[in-house]
Design a protein around this nucleic acid. Structure first.
Lengths: 327, 327
DNA sequence: AAATACAATGTAAAGGATTACATTTAGTTC
DNA sequence: GAACTAAATGTAATCCTTTACATTGTATTT
């Protein structure tokens, strides 16, 4: 690759002038600028980002941390992030943490080394202290999942309310015995959605039984299927289940189909997120739509603001109950 | 962040010694090494990758280029790539090209700037010449989709054969009128799978009619659904369809379900790839399993070899016909 | 004890870009 | 035309690390 030196020599000017053409064109005479631009084109020169970053302590890369891309929930968020980031002239680095600290550390190093200038995290469960410390030094924004802390703004939805509404909807449909397919309560959304579920039950004076609660090992189709398997093996009198993630709901639905259990008549199923596949299942899945694309976009807006040193406020977006065939 | 200077001062040695402790520990006396390591720990120092790369002209980042992560097909591939890359001590940069050259260029710049040292591409349709030129200068490996060229090794499956087998299977099941849901023939796999399909028909002395061929706008559930819609509106006598991607097949399946058309009795459906969701559909989808995870792993193996200057051979992996309920 | 070898460490250049400061050039004013 | 100003351009330091080469110190050989 040609360097700025090569361009300077070719155009018969100093490196400073070339640099100025690149970064502050108005400060150089038109004739000179044309000459330099010509050389740049002829040599097919593009500035070395390393040299530039090293000097400027700034890059145009954003970190996007998420547990696993196999969870469809992140898909639309990432699309929103990418689109918006590109608009601002940033690139994104998609990082799967697998909820493991050592993985996260590798990516945090990119921040420390100024290879990236900020991060959007969707998996803050790992180590709160590490996250809080990083956020002191580097711009961080939380998307969907979050911990409350100074310097750690978030964009999310009101999970408790959404879960409350979903459960209430089921109750109004006449369901008296509603199971909850949850994930590890280390996740905030797991705790919140459980809260909402309980609040609705309480309002209807229903005391949940111990074996209405199930926890999936992870957020995957497989796990959803497994949980439904154990529900059916154990407990036959539930008339509805609320899964805190579409991935789990779809897995559960599959198990019901396999066993020939009629959905929604014998068992109603609701999910959460409104991932694309929920309209492809049989029957199509009732779920809570999260504005994922928008969440992604807003995360970037917030992060850019933080990078520019502005104050940023937490944002809670609207959700929407999508009623389809599974209830 | 502390720099190597700070560490040197703190430990009372020169920067060269610190650098040696980091990169070639055996070349420094044990006592000194201990001292330096102590300082590194105390200051929580980690080397600045920019400075290092700038000097070494090497980084530990691999580019992964794909059209869109929303196509589930790439999911497992990426998982394989990531796992293997991490094993080698590399990180990956996931890049969605949206099959647009200008997007790709942004990412190619990262290579030119030594921010990344090699690339795995799954979308070589964009501009063959650009790709060939890049591959002259930088290590490239093609995964799944490929163009034949020197310096551009690939790992893939035998799409033609797989399509031939699938079609033959349908024919043996007694299907006489089999539709093909394809994508743009700018994709090699689209051409190959069509070839295989035609070969099987020929073998059974069946002359395909013009309106057995359909092309989706892109590889998405939505498009699959749309295509099936137009098939059903137009042509009612097909007894089976072969979709060249599971995404399309699942969309098609949905449309059949919606219209109350019995699968497989009124219409059989087969897909291609064996993405995770194919076992969750109703009915579960017959498809061709591609060893996606393995393809990802092998891509990385190949790329690392290329980076190290070794010669690399093309690899064709085995596929497998997965017969399920949709046929 | 002088000469030699080798291990350990230090010095300084290099890598590519930006930019404060210095210098040159051209234009304005009297 | 001399003195001054402002614009245009150049020089060189800087960012952080690695490493060739230089230097120091210690041990071994004769």
């Amino acid at each position: 690759m040609p360097t700025i030196q090569d361009v300077a020599k070719h155009a018969g000017v100093s490196v400073a002038t070339v640099s100025r053409v690149l970064n502050n064109p108005s400060s150089v005479a038109e004739l000179t600028r044309k000459k330099v631009e010509q050389s740049i084109r002829e040599l097919d020169y593009s500035p070395n980002i390393l040299g530039r970053n090293l000097r400027n302590a700034e890059s145009k890369m954003l970190l996007v941390l998420l547990p696993k891309i196999s969870n469809q929930f992140y898909l639309k968020i990432v699309e929103g992030i990418e689109e918006k980031a590109l608009e601002y002239g940033y690139n994104i680095l998609l990082c799967q943490t697998h909820s493991k600290l050592e993985r996260e550390k590798v990516y945090f190093d990119l921040l420390k080394n100024q290879l990236a200038v900020g991060a959007i995290t969707m998996d803050p469960t790992i180590d709160r202290q590490v996250l809080v410390n990083m956020a002191k030094r580097y711009p961080f924004v939380q998307c969907s999942e979050y911990v409350s802390s100074k310097n750690l703004p978030y964009v999310t939805i009101d999970s408790e309310l959404a879960a409350y509404q979903v459960t209430k909807y089921l109750l109004k449909q006449g369901h008296q015995r509603i199971g909850l397919i949850n994930v590890s309560e280390s996740f905030l959304y797991a705790r919140d959605r459980k809260k909402g579920y309980l609040r609705a039950l309480k309002e209807f004076h229903i005391e949940p039984e111990e074996d209405w609660f199930y926890s999936a090992n992870d957020v995957s189709l497989e796990s959803g299927q497994q949980v439904m398997r154990s529900i059916l093996n154990k407990k036959k009198d539930l008339t509805a289940v609320f899964a805190v993630s579409d991935m789990l709901a779809i897995g559960a639905l599959k198990e019901l189909n396999t066993r020939g259990i009629d959905v929604p008549n014998e068992m109603a199923v609701v999910g959460f997120d409104k991932i694309e596949f929920t309209s492809m299942t049989y029957p199509s899945l009732t779920t809570v739509a999260q504005p994922m694309y928008k969440m992604g976009e807003i995360s970037v807006d917030m992060l850019i603001k933080k990078i520019q040193g502005e104050e940023v406020e937490d944002i809670i977006l609207e959700h929407e109950l999508i009623i389809r065939e599974s209830t």
